[in-house]
Design a protein around this nucleic acid. Structure first.
Lengths: 271, 271
DNA sequence: AGTTTGGTTCCAATTAATGAAACCTAGTTT
DNA sequence: AAACTAGGTTTCATTAATTGGAACCAAACT
């Protein structure tokens, strides 16, 4: 856990992650008992994080929790990410079209990070879903992304997988996963055959920029009770079209106007 | 801008905010031109932020943008905040009940921070809406919260208001706002009479814990084209009930189990 | 070829973080 | 009531990181 390597800021983030890791407000003593940092260091770190608003401190209960300032920063991150805001209208369309649960994910530190979601039947359940993380080696979107990762990044991502056997179908060895990734590259899409959760299946495609760079992945998900894999496969053309449309929008998006050296400076000055 | 005061972490956050402040990916030179930090310092700060995932760097375009790691952290912040997750079902109910746009907000550094929203027509979009900030002095939720802030915190919050005249109705002096806040305390709810945007009106109530501490605020919003203030006022009882229910849930929430010294240590050890 | 713009690296001076230990303080226990 | 203690907070000499001026490099213009 210790030493993400990046000086003071890295350590501060260790602590922030540590606090966020508890799914509830946590007291100093609890953090100390599970921390590699000495008392005084941890204490001052928490002070700093609290005073910057990254953590919030409950005076009454003497507990720390992630602060609302993060929500604000995340909004900025989401809004100007190269994928999520562009994909939004496409997700709307796709979801209305096929009427099943649709996920949009990116890869973050070897994990699947869900950045958007459409749930056809119950539209509201979603809010707490974006920002969730999941394993890459046993989810449709995860495998779709791993399959199209450059070699060095793939090695890094693989080294971060836990290969826990979630269900009887989970591919729980790097070898099995390697073969699966090759198959995914072959056919261009990934399946999740109840590998993460019993009763949940999905079909997923990567979102690749025109130049072949991996941007994210997208999936249609269902329960075995109400949908079959062939049915999911029938959505594949539309899923692919949406992924392609998103990728092409994303490629355009960076050039809304012709960049000129002078303009940048002018805009900066007016700030 | 410089020197939030909190050592290295504070400076790093200055830079992070600075990047987030541009509503688009930015280049090093642009940041440098608008930064108080010297070249080398800013450069290394950006390196650190990038390598920790708080910023993402576009190799091709040489631009920095807020990183997806923030979305992940924000999820934790949102999910264990003392207000938003508790309020969620109540917002669902209220929104289904009255069929108008409903906002849930908190106060963050003198600004209104929207933490949840229900839009009558469209389902919710995660951090595209939540995480947004707005002015406190000229929005319904903002004024509702300012009115119930302890004196010292109010002074701090007021000092952070810009008092920009958004519309003809905007209260753009501390004095006018002070009178308005007194009136809000009197009647228990706040109005926004097109003070922030022409054509947008709303009615808002504070969310106060049983002990009177301010937790946040909630509003029902509409356009003057399709709704009138009396109609909005007719929602007041239900809005108040929802706010009360949220506050009471929030008060209970902190005691899911009786704390005992031994348990904390045991749980910590198993971590 | 020459020059400007944009980005990166060096390194001695400076500043901040560190952590062991001492010190509070509000509850318990004897 | 005095002694203890768990949980927090502060001190301070030591250690490590940040700082920023300046040099450097690499493209993009001229």
């Amino acid at each position: 856990m210790r030493g993400t390597g990046d000086g003071t800021v890295g350590k501060a983030l260790d602590v922030l992650d540590h606090v966020a890791g508890f799914a509830r407000p946590v007291r100093f003593a609890e953090l100390l008992a599970t921390s590699t940092y000495p008392k005084a260091t941890l204490y001052r770190m928490l002070q700093t994080l609290t005073s910057t608003g990254l953590l919030s401190y409950d005076e009454d209960r003497h507990t720390y929790a992630p602060g609302v300032r993060l929500v604000r920063l995340a909004h900025a991150a989401w809004a100007q990410s190269s994928l999520a805001p562009i994909a939004r209208p496409h997700l709307d369309l796709l979801s209305r079209d096929i009427g099943e649960t649709v996920h949009l994910a990116q890869l973050d530190a070897g994990q699947v990070l869900y950045v958007d979601k459409r749930n056809a039947v119950r539209p509201v359940e979603m809010f707490s879903e974006a920002g969730k993380v999941g394993p890459a080696y046993c989810t449709g979107v995860g495998k779709a992304m791993l399959a199209y990762l450059p070699e060095d990044q793939l090695a890094d991502a693989l080294s971060r997988q836990s290969f826990h056997r979630h269900t009887a179908q989970t591919l729980d060895t790097p070898e099995a996963l390697g073969a699966e990734l090759a198959a995914i590259r072959q056919r261009g899409h990934a399946y999740d055959r109840e590998e993460h959760e019993d009763g949940i299946i999905c079909i997923a495609v990567p979102i690749l920029s025109p130049s072949g760079r991996l941007l994210g992945a997208m999936s249609v998900t269902g329960t075995t009770r109400h949908i079959s894999m062939p049915k999911l496969e029938s959505y594949l053309p539309r899923l692919r079209d949406a992924a392609k449309a998103i990728a092409s929008d994303a490629a355009d998006w960076r050039f809304p106007d012709t960049p000129s050296p002078a303009r940048g400076a002018a805009r900066a000055a007016s700030h």
